[in-house]
Design a protein around this nucleic acid. Sequence first.
DNA 1: CTGAAAGCGCTAACAG
DNA 2: CTGTTAGCGCTTTCAG
Lengths: 360, 360
Amino acid sequence: MSGTNIRALAKELNLSIGTVSKALRDSYEISAATKKKVLALAQKRNYIANPYASSLRRKKSNTIGVVVPEVADSFFSHAIKGIDSVAQLKGYHVLVYLTYESFAKEQAILKDFTSGRVDGVLVSISSETSDDAHITNLMNRNIPVVFFDRVIHAVATAKITTDDFESGYNATKHLIEQGCDRVAYLSISNQLSINNKRMEGFKEALHDHKLTLKASQIIRCSNNEQENYQLIKKALQRKNNPYGIIASVEKLTPPVYLACKELGVLIPKQLKVVSFSNLETALILNPSLTTINQPAFEMGERAATILFKSIDKKHYKLKNENIIIPSKLIARESSAKGRLHFVQKIICCLSIHTLFRRLC
Amino acid sequence: MSGTNIRALAKELNLSIGTVSKALRDSYEISAATKKKVLALAQKRNYIANPYASSLRRKKSNTIGVVVPEVADSFFSHAIKGIDSVAQLKGYHVLVYLTYESFAKEQAILKDFTSGRVDGVLVSISSETSDDAHITNLMNRNIPVVFFDRVIHAVATAKITTDDFESGYNATKHLIEQGCDRVAYLSISNQLSINNKRMEGFKEALHDHKLTLKASQIIRCSNNEQENYQLIKKALQRKNNPYGIIASVEKLTPPVYLACKELGVLIPKQLKVVSFSNLETALILNPSLTTINQPAFEMGERAATILFKSIDKKHYKLKNENIIIPSKLIARESSAKGRLHFVQKIICCLSIHTLFRRLC
DNA sequence: CTGAAAGCGCTAACAG
DNA sequence: CTGTTAGCGCTTTCAG
């Protein structure tokens, strides 16, 4: 399996195993000369310490666990990059686990962490998660847990989120200011605080603008794509159809656009859209999409940094703190004030005689 | 750190440690009654074996390493999902490492694997990787390596790719058939076989259609977004500008669209675009994007399955095989034959008098 | 400064 | 069927 071990190095150098071990870990007990010899041979023999022997002995894995519901999503993939970037710096290894939004899977994964497999955990809970025992259980065993994005507020630890309430508020305010007096909110699991906070912001903004909220303005989406698509279509066909719509997560954007396409509803003329999304393609959508851009990379980075603070100082208990990194609303054509958007203008303009021939 | 250990269980049951261990691993040597007792107590005490003690002793980590250049990319994130799905089934853990296209990082990561940290490796090489010693070195130590997508053909192991040559050929043929007699290919690193094969397909298609290839039709992109954007813009402004363009990887799509927007080049009227991409938003781009859809999830799944075949049968050497899962060309508006696309038609049609007032 | 020795928690021969 | 025992490879007292 592995190549050389510490015993072989010791024998070759006529040193004891203990001395070699200390030299490799740069112990103050060892003379510079010996260290040099040892390091040189280790290099020559491509020696890498067996991590499992080392972990067993030191009760430290140099590994963190990252638990997320999904990875094929621009938020989570960027967050993972943020996490990875600081883990690499610290020489840590990153175990990634996907829950696919299943609470049972999440529980099973965290239960396994009980074994000491990881020194700390970064988690963004599933949309089905309805209890925090699996988390607190881990924390009680002195394995620090830091939440990012999808948090459980009842658990007393560090939580990195974006300003969900404000973002929901701003998205709604933006749509109202662009002329929508009837805005719908596409909600995902009402177990998730990110969803609920965004929705609270939405409600508050309506209230502040003296708009009353009807039940039909909150559209409960699920994890079923086809179902969501149908729900959105139905909403757009209702008598009191919305003029503006807020997609509370990225994956709800395509069904909105597609429903509009199918129904011939024009964005932004007949429906204005804002989406929580970090997609790089927002800018080149048809029409370009107004987004609430979450600081995904930064959130991952920050969460990891805080986790390592706790891991490094053995008994430094994580404060019960809420770290909020603001999102940015980037206004684009999907919420433009009744205008046609730029490219369409050009196209229409340039080909106006073609159009006549073809369409009129 | 961890909770109970096997010693505590043994003591509580008045059994030897060995017996408990065997019972937990469901050894044939142990009576049903004892197994039941042991399992019951293990459950009650939430016993999870220390993975590192176990790994050390068995020389088996139940962990695989996944090495990719990037995760915020629809191909890689879906491939990781495919890998994860089979790893979960096998009860394996997945260490994810990002190389950020750095060869040095890739080498360092694989060198670490030399320690026995993982039982097998799935790798998609960086665009800078110019040598395979770090891979073969691992294989020589009996750690199986399977490539997916970005492979090194010189290394004798299993490789899962899509039909890159054919895809490049088909993309080009498609553009030619849609009326482009001058097609440009956006190349990334010419170290990568996926790039080169796609490019070979491109060349062959030109050849088969009696089109000659000028050097300027191959645009060498890098990892620098801004640079790529400028390169593309320049190409579009040349005298012999291309009428069709093939983006060999997903991340080159936004700069193409943005360059067109900035220059007022109309897609697909003046430039037709095909991109290697799995983006779910391809359908709602402006205009919707013709893609070569790679079977990302399936490739990851397949690669993992093959890797596990080798891991399971201790000394089953992986065959030097090429497994090719075909991509699909999905024609959309960005390569349409000179027509305006659907939504634009509607918009122009519906608002034709508005247009007159505003634009003419 | 170096060495000897105990042991992390588990597994697997081997004995009974 | 159960128990005993010798390690896996490394770290870390403790002695010298």
